[in-house]
Write a protein that binds this DNA or RNA. Structure first.
Lengths: 185, 185
DNA sequence: CACACTCGTTCGGCTTGACGAACGCGCCGT
DNA sequence: ACGGCGCGTTCGTCAAGCCGAACGAGTGTG
């Protein structure tokens, strides 16, 4: 994929699209972002190369995540908010993990496939210090991450987080499964 | 996404961290990115406010998704959305690989998401001796393995093989994608 | 019709990011 | 010790981003 092209054109389009979607005027957005409207005008025209601070301010003003401005409109996966009902407990029939590959002796990394069905969240106790978990959702929707700050992932999404704090996994739709790499340092 | 302070300090830290993770020198990264090393030096020092083009070039040079550079480590969770991947190293239109996580310096392991469309097979040259590849097919069907002895994988199947011999990847149905872990010893 | 208002673009200036060159430092070989 | 080399920082210059102000276009109101 010839990605090398600077995403400025895509940013220009995204800025205008998001602004119009919010029903805001160019002047209003510039005012909220604290930048000159002339600057915003040029950016929407595709002229120029905004600085991080400028683009960040625009993202805040538009109420749009930063990454949504810089990424081409490939987006199909959406994050759906759901209630964060966390019930305690452990192994159930609606959860299964298969070890695919284990690391060499001073345990380095293990690769799993994990399948889950909607229901109560599975809570995991902290692992040894320094361990890190990497998850790619293959299908479905998964809420995972540290117990106090879980993240919702859709198909194709990736997340990594520390494994030495309490964390959880919870399927949000049937047929959810994910690839899990557990890393020990 | 937490929209507070300008993420410049976080970017500075991320740039330096990712650079030494890759075991690269400041000069080398600047050369690959096509920017002056003085610029990179100042960015890593937290002085300045890079333009989008500059930061994008650095993301490509470091092999790091763009969002990973701008997302402040608000939580310990790092997320790469399926619609927010920065893709590189693509020499064909029907193949794309995204680096999700890279190992520490004497390269240990890298985690990719790979998307393919049916067509001619993609041939991969041998990597450094001792490297091993692990693949889990998330959707579709994939023929992969050593060039002289490929195997077919269906959704959910897993395979690992040596990466230091010629090998190939070929999607058999549209919409095929897989999680790929590349391990170097 | 004139007026007041707003939207978005264009025009000088000031500020700042990006560059190349030179510098100090550490680390090899001879 | 002495050069030679590569790394990372600092300095001076130039281009470009950002800004405020002024400009034409469109609209509604007395």
């Amino acid at each position: 994929m010839a990605e090398s092209g600077p995403p400025i054109a895509a940013i220009a389009a995204a800025l205008r699209r998001e602004r119009q979607r919010a029903g805001l005027t160019l002047s209003e957005v510039a005012r909220r972002a604290g930048i000159a409207k002339s600057t915003l005008s040029q950016l929407e025209a595709g002229t120029g190369n905004p600085s991080i601070e400028t683009l960040w301010a625009l993202g805040v003003a538009l109420g749009v995540p930063f990454s949504q401005l810089v990424d081409p409109p490939t987006s199909q996966v959406r994050v759906v908010r759901a209630d964060a009902r966390t019930t305690f407990h452990a192994d159930r029939a609606d959860f299964a993990a298969t070890l695919l590959s284990a690391g060499d002796h001073p345990a380095r990394r293990d690769l799993y496939v994990m399948t889950l069905e909607p229901g109560s969240a599975r809570m995991a106790d902290p692992h040894i210090p320094g361990s890190v978990e990497h998850i790619v959702v293959a299908a479905g929707r998964l809420r995972t991450g540290p117990t106090d700050a879980p993240i919702e992932l859709g198909t194709g999404d990736y997340a990594s987080f520390r494994g030495d704090v309490p964390h959880c996994y919870e399927a949000l739709v049937p047929g959810t499964w994910a690839v899990l790499m557990m890393e020990h340092h």
